[in-house]
Amino acid sequence: MQLVVARIGRAHGIKGEVTVEVRTDEPELRLGPGAVLTTDPASAGPLTIETGRVHSGRLLLRFEGVSDRTGAEALRNTLLIAEIDPEELPEGEDEYYDHQLIDLDVVTADGTEVGRITEISHLPTQDLFIVERPDGSEVMIPFVEEIVTEIDLEEQKAVITPPPGLIDDRAEIASSRDDASGREES
């Protein structure tokens, strides 16, 4: 199974280093020296990590065979992909790989169907589930324990307790507001 672990950013300096946008919770495992990664587009790789270091809060990598700024710039926006064993699980008890969460059914605590997870968006402050609803629309659900109360991989579902307005249809909200304002006027 393949897992996108980073996206290459701009070149840093003149010796072939690049910034990377990390997309894994285990960068020390997936992005360490000696790691061989496939790429998207495939024409850029495979790439072997020669060195890695943190500079001003950003991870910088240098790849074997890339020794100057021109070579580093040519890799910009390339996705780095690691091969992982599909049975491998993260170290933490409540941690999951993206591939384990994609295609899970999302339901509320009372069993109401919300949709299916189609993507995980990793933002600086939190992760989001991108959920496709039965009508084809999408809703973003913060992957925080206050909202996502259970992940059941055996049942292939994520149980949520959404705050008001998170998954409610805008039309339903407007309708309930109209009903409320109509009652007040009577």
Score class of each variant (00 low, 15 high):
M1I: 05
V4A: 12
V4R: 14
V4M: 13
V5W: 03
R10A: 13
H12R: 15
I14H: 10
K15T: 03
G16H: 00
E17C: 11
V18L: 10
R23C: 07
E26T: 10
P27F: 03
E28K: 10
L31H: 02
A42T: 05
G45L: 02
P46I: 11
T48K: 06
E50C: 01
S56R: 12
R58A: 04
R58S: 06
L59H: 05
L59D: 02
E64P: 08
E64V: 15
V66F: 05
R69L: 04
N77F: 14
L79P: 00
I84L: 04
D85W: 05
P86Y: 00
E87A: 01
E88Q: 13
Y96H: 07
Y96Q: 05
H99I: 01
L101Y: 00
L101W: 00
D103T: 02
T108H: 09
A109Y: 08
D110Y: 03
D110F: 02
E113T: 14
P124W: 01
Q126T: 10
V131N: 12
P134S: 07
D135H: 05
G136S: 08
V144A: 12
T149K: 03
Q156N: 14
K157A: 08
I160R: 04
T161D: 10
P162G: 13
P162D: 12
D169N: 14
R170I: 07
A171Y: 09
S175C: 09
G182N: 11
E185Q: 07
